[in-house]
Write a protein that binds this DNA or RNA. Sequence first.
DNA 1: TCCTGTATAGAAAGCGCTTGCTGTAACGCT
DNA 2: AGCGTTACAGCAAGCGCTTTCTATACAGGA
Lengths: 348, 348
Amino acid sequence: MTVTLADVAARAQVSPATVSRVLNGNYPVAATTRERVLRAVDDLDYVLNGPASALAAATSDLVGILVNDIADPFFGIMASAIQSEVSGPGGRAGGERLAVVCNTGGSPERELTYLTLLQRQRAAAVVLTGGAVENPPHLAAVSAKLRRLEEAGTKVVLCGRPPAPDTSAIALTFDNRGGGQELTEHLIGLGHRRLGYIAGPEERTTTRHRLEGHRAALAGHGIAEDPRWTVHGRYDRRSGYEATLELFRRDPSLTAVVAANDSVAIGACAALRESGRRIPEDVSVAGFDDLPFSVDAVPSLTTVRLPLSEAGARAGRIAMGREEAPPGGIATARGELMVRGSSGVPRS
Amino acid sequence: MTVTLADVAARAQVSPATVSRVLNGNYPVAATTRERVLRAVDDLDYVLNGPASALAAATSDLVGILVNDIADPFFGIMASAIQSEVSGPGGRAGGERLAVVCNTGGSPERELTYLTLLQRQRAAAVVLTGGAVENPPHLAAVSAKLRRLEEAGTKVVLCGRPPAPDTSAIALTFDNRGGGQELTEHLIGLGHRRLGYIAGPEERTTTRHRLEGHRAALAGHGIAEDPRWTVHGRYDRRSGYEATLELFRRDPSLTAVVAANDSVAIGACAALRESGRRIPEDVSVAGFDDLPFSVDAVPSLTTVRLPLSEAGARAGRIAMGREEAPPGGIATARGELMVRGSSGVPRS
DNA sequence: TCCTGTATAGAAAGCGCTTGCTGTAACGCT
DNA sequence: AGCGTTACAGCAAGCGCTTTCTATACAGGA
């Protein structure tokens, strides 16, 4: 059998209660006794039984991080930042909290399943990252779930995600709308009037907000939008590649392509190159997020930088109660326009 | 208070034992009773108490996945594959297992801390991904930890990592040595005789094996290696950028740069471009891993494709006991040389 | 010297679930 | 009719910890 608290107690000649107190350090224990207990723990290689401890104390050291796609650096960067804050300051996995990343794959069902699993584990906190699916029943289901989690004492933080109605979840959102608008305005400023837009999956807040920003910019400059100029796809390179082909099949006269995110933009670049169009001489391209590889694209990608790491870190700290929640429970971070080589004046 | 099993039992007019059996489905229960219980569960919105269940049953549904850097797609892709297998076939997060990704940041201490945390949670399985730190005391500590985990009934699988001595951990490794050799041989075959090598961090198995392969290729073709031609760095873009500058400062006559991985190679490309060297006309570049963005680099990157997703999926299945372990507990996957635009014949 | 206060340790009652064992009908067999 | 089976359902004993409450010892004050 594995070593139990009682074994340690026996070896240290104290009661189990004392061992527990030494381990938790939340009750005065004489220095000599503590010594003895600690040595016994060491001698026996004792490891606390998490479930038993969680059951008795009605608390747990699990913190859940939900991401849409763990293979996407967008989420990886946020998750990494959240995790390092959750694991304790100083970068050590101290504080002894187990930060766990759960990959929903963007599926509403899996999102709910993971929330239930975390609820079952009585997680100390849950951080949901990235855009939400905008399907009303699902939204309601998630809100209900979050409410129950909060009732059970789980701290809920949303990172890069709009507020959840009827919950007291803290929301750290990105100004996707403003970023999208600024980006398109940059292109318009360069002289572009015929802009294709490769949007993300439908029914996603991120998709909608970025697209709204784009359209606001067009409208603001009196540019009538052609419905052929918008294509929806996934948030990946492949999708950008295919959507670009489709876009130019529909209207070969486009002078710019705005993508839902950097991965999509990279795919768009590939498609343009293969079809013999130069960037940015023939067509300008813009992305969103400013992921690490974007600066290395050739030409480097014009995009909107989102403070993923900062937001993640903050979300982690709030989840741990180490930072106060923003007033109103909502904070919005702006994106920063990064003008690089992939955008230029259109060919006349 | 939250709803307990007893509450459900009361509402369904059965004993707690029966409710437990309905929920676990591991004991015959009359259909009508089951119905009644299920309805009560639904009515009360009951969620099992994980810790209590784990304590009583002495098992848990937690599966740990250790990665060096969650923001790096290399690990993201493996983690994603592992997780989807762990969460049950069909992609649903069914099977009700909580696959948790733990980010060690490449730190030996955090690796051990996470292993202890998982041991504490009595994890059902643990998958360690990526290269190991080759520091003897640390190696021994990890092996000891893995042994204790196994004693406690935790299944241990290594994915993309060499076998752990004195444990019965299943190891799914990559043939980094062979891949490195093949890659360099490709370059030599093109006519290169002066090759720079940007290695990963020292004391890492992955770093060592890839470098060994490179050197084996050189030796096999009678090319004497200049110590100035090897620089160590981190596994990221930045490191590749700096290392390349250093490499050409030391020896401007190099005709090829082989990088520890694709991110490093991308950084190398940026440095070369900025210093006015064309790829591959002036200098050829090669990476390793074939991450998704590598094909989109300009020119696209010559590299070695590793079956990350396949290996991860297999590791996940083995961890779940859904696939038999390979004979001897070890399986090695070969890399596939991907010749693309970044490598060419050297300028004469 | 006696009493009160302070510091420390122990006893024991759970936390909410699982499961071996013990009923107890209903059924089919000889 | 008698009895072994089968099919469920319940009882109750933990699982290994935490924590409240109680006990003890010693110090200091009156």
